[in-house]
Protein backbone atom coordinates (compact mmCIF):
# COMPACT_ATOMS: atom_id res chain seq x y z
CA UNK A 1 0.00 0.00 0.00
CA UNK A 2 2.74 2.43 0.99
CA UNK A 3 6.37 2.04 0.00
CA UNK A 4 8.89 4.64 1.10
CA UNK A 5 12.31 4.28 -0.49
CA UNK A 6 15.38 6.15 0.68
CA UNK A 7 13.50 9.35 1.42
CA UNK A 8 15.49 12.53 2.12
CA UNK A 9 13.61 15.67 3.17
CA UNK A 10 14.78 19.19 3.98
CA UNK A 11 13.08 22.18 5.53
CA UNK A 12 14.55 25.61 4.94
CA UNK A 13 17.77 24.03 3.75
CA UNK A 14 18.11 21.82 6.81
CA UNK A 15 18.08 18.08 6.20
CA UNK A 16 15.59 16.41 8.51
CA UNK A 17 14.82 13.00 7.06
CA UNK A 18 17.92 11.14 6.01
CA UNK A 19 17.00 8.04 4.08
CA UNK A 20 13.72 6.59 5.32
CA UNK A 21 12.65 3.15 4.16
CA UNK A 22 9.26 1.78 5.12
CA UNK A 23 6.73 -0.67 3.71
CA UNK A 24 3.14 -0.76 4.90
CA UNK A 25 0.77 -3.47 3.66
CA UNK A 26 -3.02 -3.45 3.83
CA UNK A 27 -4.33 -4.64 7.19
CA UNK A 28 -1.18 -3.63 9.08
CA UNK A 29 -0.67 -1.24 11.93
CA UNK A 30 2.74 0.35 12.22
CA UNK A 31 3.90 2.41 15.15
CA UNK A 32 6.61 5.02 14.69
CA UNK A 33 8.25 6.06 17.91
CA UNK A 34 11.17 8.28 18.71
CA UNK A 35 12.25 11.24 20.81
CA UNK A 36 11.09 14.78 20.12
CA UNK A 37 12.62 16.41 17.09
CA UNK A 38 13.57 13.18 15.38
CA UNK A 39 11.42 13.90 12.30
CA UNK A 40 8.18 11.99 12.93
CA UNK A 41 5.87 14.90 12.11
CA UNK A 42 8.03 15.79 9.15
CA UNK A 43 7.46 12.33 7.73
CA UNK A 44 3.71 12.53 8.40
CA UNK A 45 3.44 15.96 6.76
CA UNK A 46 5.46 14.98 3.72
CA UNK A 47 3.12 12.06 3.17
CA UNK A 48 0.11 14.39 3.41
CA UNK A 49 1.65 16.78 0.87
CA UNK A 50 2.75 19.81 2.83
CA UNK A 51 4.63 22.02 0.43
CA UNK A 52 7.22 23.60 2.70
CA UNK A 53 8.93 20.21 3.06
CA UNK A 54 11.30 19.61 0.19
CA UNK A 55 11.91 16.05 -0.91
CA UNK A 56 15.54 16.07 -2.06
CA UNK A 57 15.66 12.40 -3.05
CA UNK A 58 13.86 9.10 -2.71
CA UNK A 59 10.42 7.95 -3.71
CA UNK A 60 7.06 7.15 -2.20
CA UNK A 61 4.53 4.86 -3.84
CA UNK A 62 0.97 4.75 -2.55
CA UNK A 63 -1.43 2.14 -3.93
CA UNK A 64 0.89 1.79 -6.88
CA UNK A 65 1.08 5.51 -7.69
CA UNK A 66 3.74 8.14 -7.20
CA UNK A 67 2.46 9.86 -4.07
CA UNK A 68 4.86 12.79 -4.29
CA UNK A 69 3.34 13.85 -7.62
CA UNK A 70 -0.14 14.17 -6.16
CA UNK A 71 -1.75 17.31 -4.70
CA UNK A 72 -2.69 17.18 -1.02
CA UNK A 73 -6.39 17.06 -1.90
CA UNK A 74 -5.90 14.15 -4.30
CA UNK A 75 -3.96 12.22 -1.69
CA UNK A 76 -6.89 12.66 0.69
CA UNK A 77 -9.36 11.68 -2.03
CA UNK A 78 -7.29 8.54 -2.63
CA UNK A 79 -7.85 7.61 0.99
CA UNK A 80 -4.83 9.00 2.79
CA UNK A 81 -5.64 10.68 6.07
CA UNK A 82 -3.40 12.63 8.43
CA UNK A 83 -4.52 13.26 11.96
CA UNK A 84 -2.57 16.44 12.69
CA UNK A 85 -0.39 16.81 15.76
CA UNK A 86 -1.54 20.43 16.01
CA UNK A 87 -4.92 20.85 14.28
CA UNK A 88 -5.44 24.42 13.16
CA UNK A 89 -8.40 26.62 14.13
CA UNK A 90 -10.36 28.04 11.21
CA UNK A 91 -12.75 30.71 12.48
CA UNK A 92 -15.70 31.38 10.20
CA UNK A 93 -15.73 27.92 8.59
CA UNK A 94 -18.53 26.00 10.32
CA UNK A 95 -17.69 22.40 11.24
CA UNK A 96 -20.75 20.97 9.54
CA UNK A 97 -20.08 22.85 6.34
CA UNK A 98 -16.44 21.76 6.39
CA UNK A 99 -17.22 18.09 7.00
CA UNK A 100 -19.93 17.95 4.38
CA UNK A 101 -17.72 19.64 1.79
CA UNK A 102 -14.88 17.30 2.63
CA UNK A 103 -17.00 14.18 2.27
CA UNK A 104 -18.70 15.33 -0.89
CA UNK A 105 -15.48 16.45 -2.57
CA UNK A 106 -14.11 12.98 -1.92
CA UNK A 107 -17.28 11.28 -3.14
CA UNK A 108 -17.31 13.39 -6.29
CA UNK A 109 -13.71 12.38 -7.00
CA UNK A 110 -14.65 8.73 -6.71
CA UNK A 111 -17.68 9.15 -8.94
CA UNK A 112 -20.16 8.68 -6.10
CA UNK A 113 -23.34 10.69 -5.61
CA UNK A 114 -22.92 13.61 -3.24
CA UNK A 115 -24.75 13.28 0.06
CA UNK A 116 -27.75 15.52 0.56
CA UNK A 117 -27.88 17.68 3.67
CA UNK A 118 -30.26 15.18 5.30
CA UNK A 119 -28.18 12.13 4.43
CA UNK A 120 -25.04 13.84 5.62
CA UNK A 121 -26.51 14.82 8.97
CA UNK A 122 -27.71 11.30 9.58
CA UNK A 123 -24.28 9.88 8.73
CA UNK A 124 -22.58 12.51 10.87
CA UNK A 125 -24.72 11.66 13.88
CA UNK A 126 -23.79 7.99 13.60
CA UNK A 127 -20.10 8.83 13.66
CA UNK A 128 -20.50 11.34 16.45
CA UNK A 129 -21.79 8.56 18.61
CA UNK A 130 -18.87 6.31 17.75
CA UNK A 131 -16.25 8.79 18.95
CA UNK A 132 -18.41 10.47 21.56
CA UNK A 133 -18.38 13.82 19.78
CA UNK A 134 -20.59 16.53 21.23
CA UNK A 135 -22.89 18.84 19.22
CA UNK A 136 -21.46 21.77 21.14
CA UNK A 137 -18.32 21.11 19.08
CA UNK A 138 -19.95 20.37 15.72
CA UNK A 139 -21.92 23.62 16.03
CA UNK A 140 -18.73 25.69 16.10
CA UNK A 141 -16.21 26.75 13.52
CA UNK A 142 -13.49 24.21 12.73
CA UNK A 143 -11.49 23.61 15.93
CA UNK A 144 -12.36 27.08 17.17
CA UNK A 145 -12.01 27.28 20.92
CA UNK A 146 -11.53 23.50 21.16
CA UNK A 147 -9.33 22.26 23.99
CA UNK A 148 -6.25 20.22 23.08
CA UNK A 149 -8.11 16.97 23.74
CA UNK A 150 -11.17 18.11 21.78
CA UNK A 151 -9.01 18.90 18.79
CA UNK A 152 -7.56 15.39 18.86
CA UNK A 153 -11.00 13.89 19.19
CA UNK A 154 -12.12 15.97 16.23
CA UNK A 155 -9.32 14.47 14.14
CA UNK A 156 -10.51 10.97 14.96
CA UNK A 157 -14.09 12.03 14.26
CA UNK A 158 -13.03 13.16 10.80
CA UNK A 159 -11.18 9.92 10.28
CA UNK A 160 -14.31 7.99 11.20
CA UNK A 161 -16.34 10.06 8.72
CA UNK A 162 -13.86 9.76 5.87
CA UNK A 163 -13.00 6.07 6.37
CA UNK A 164 -9.50 6.35 4.91
CA UNK A 165 -7.42 3.52 3.46
CA UNK A 166 -4.28 4.74 5.15
CA UNK A 167 -4.53 6.75 8.35
CA UNK A 168 -1.49 8.46 9.84
CA UNK A 169 -2.05 9.52 13.44
CA UNK A 170 0.53 12.06 14.53
CA UNK A 171 0.66 12.04 18.35
CA UNK A 172 -3.10 11.80 18.52
CA UNK A 173 -2.65 10.39 22.02
CA UNK A 174 -0.65 13.22 23.55
CA UNK A 175 -2.57 15.28 26.05
CA UNK A 176 -5.44 12.81 26.26
CA UNK A 177 -6.78 11.30 29.47
CA UNK A 178 -7.35 7.57 29.60
CA UNK A 179 -11.02 7.76 28.53
CA UNK A 180 -10.24 9.92 25.54
CA UNK A 181 -7.41 7.58 24.70
CA UNK A 182 -9.80 4.64 24.69
CA UNK A 183 -12.17 6.57 22.43
CA UNK A 184 -9.37 7.23 19.97
CA UNK A 185 -8.40 3.57 20.07
CA UNK A 186 -12.01 2.54 19.50
CA UNK A 187 -12.13 4.80 16.45
CA UNK A 188 -9.00 3.25 15.02
CA UNK A 189 -9.96 -0.31 15.85
CA UNK A 190 -13.43 0.09 14.33
CA UNK A 191 -11.87 1.23 11.10
CA UNK A 192 -9.43 -1.65 11.09
CA UNK A 193 -9.93 -4.03 8.19
CA UNK A 194 -7.83 -6.22 5.90
CA UNK A 195 -7.91 -3.42 3.31
CA UNK A 196 -6.90 -0.53 5.55
CA UNK A 197 -3.66 0.36 7.24
CA UNK A 198 -2.67 2.71 10.04
CA UNK A 199 0.56 4.42 11.02
CA UNK A 200 0.54 5.49 14.64
CA UNK A 201 3.13 8.12 15.50
CA UNK A 202 3.69 8.43 19.21
CA UNK A 203 6.41 8.75 21.74
CA UNK A 204 4.63 6.95 24.52
CA UNK A 205 3.81 3.30 24.44
CA UNK A 206 0.56 3.97 26.37
CA UNK A 207 -1.62 4.15 23.25
CA UNK A 208 -0.16 0.87 22.04
CA UNK A 209 -1.90 -0.91 24.92
CA UNK A 210 -5.14 -0.20 23.07
CA UNK A 211 -4.01 -0.19 19.46
CA UNK A 212 -1.83 -3.24 19.02
CA UNK A 213 0.75 -2.62 16.32
CA UNK A 214 2.17 -5.25 14.01
CA UNK A 215 5.47 -3.38 13.74
CA UNK A 216 7.27 -0.78 15.80
CA UNK A 217 9.91 1.49 14.27
CA UNK A 218 12.20 3.85 16.04
CA UNK A 219 12.90 7.08 14.22
CA UNK A 220 15.98 8.89 15.47
CA UNK A 221 17.78 11.79 13.87
CA UNK A 222 15.94 11.39 10.61
CA UNK A 223 16.51 7.64 10.23
CA UNK A 224 14.67 4.48 11.19
CA UNK A 225 17.23 2.96 13.48
CA UNK A 226 15.30 -0.03 14.73
CA UNK A 227 12.29 -2.02 13.59
CA UNK A 228 10.68 -4.95 15.36
CA UNK A 229 7.36 -6.34 16.59
CA UNK A 230 5.16 -4.86 19.31
CA UNK A 231 7.57 -5.95 22.04
CA UNK A 232 9.93 -3.13 20.98
CA UNK A 233 7.47 -0.58 22.34
CA UNK A 234 7.60 -2.20 25.76
CA UNK A 235 11.35 -2.33 25.68
CA UNK A 236 11.46 1.39 24.85
CA UNK A 237 9.06 2.13 27.67
CA UNK A 238 11.28 0.28 30.07
CA UNK A 239 14.69 1.49 28.95
CA UNK A 240 13.81 4.92 27.54
CA UNK A 241 15.19 6.49 24.40
CA UNK A 242 18.62 6.89 25.97
CA UNK A 243 19.10 3.24 25.30
CA UNK A 244 18.70 3.85 21.56
CA UNK A 245 20.89 6.92 21.70
CA UNK A 246 23.64 4.99 23.45
CA UNK A 247 23.34 2.12 21.04
CA UNK A 248 23.63 4.58 18.17
CA UNK A 249 26.73 6.17 19.63
CA UNK A 250 28.53 2.82 19.72
Amino acid sequence: MLIIKDLYVSVEGMEILKGINLKVKPGEIHAIMGPNGSGKSTLANVLAGKEEYEVTSGEVTYTGEDLLEMSPEDRAREGLFLSFQYPVEIPGVPMVNFLKTSINEQRKYRGQEELTAGEFLKYMREKMELVDMHTKLTNRSVNEGFSGGEKKKNEIFQMALLEPKLAILDETDSGLDIDALKTVARGVNTLRSPENATIVVTHYQRLLDYIIPDYVHVLYQGKIVKSAGKELALELEEKGYDWIKKEMAV
Binding site: A48, P72, T101
Partner: peptide, 10 residues
Protein backbone atom coordinates in the same frame (compact mmCIF):
# COMPACT_ATOMS: atom_id res chain seq x y z
CA UNK B 1 -5.65 26.47 7.44
CA UNK B 2 -5.63 26.12 3.69
CA UNK B 3 -3.50 22.98 3.97
CA UNK B 4 -5.81 21.57 6.61
CA UNK B 5 -8.79 21.90 4.27
CA UNK B 6 -6.88 20.44 1.33
CA UNK B 7 -5.66 17.56 3.46
CA UNK B 8 -9.32 16.66 3.88
CA UNK B 9 -9.85 16.41 0.15
CA UNK B 10 -11.14 19.91 -0.51
Amino acid sequence: ALFYLRARGI
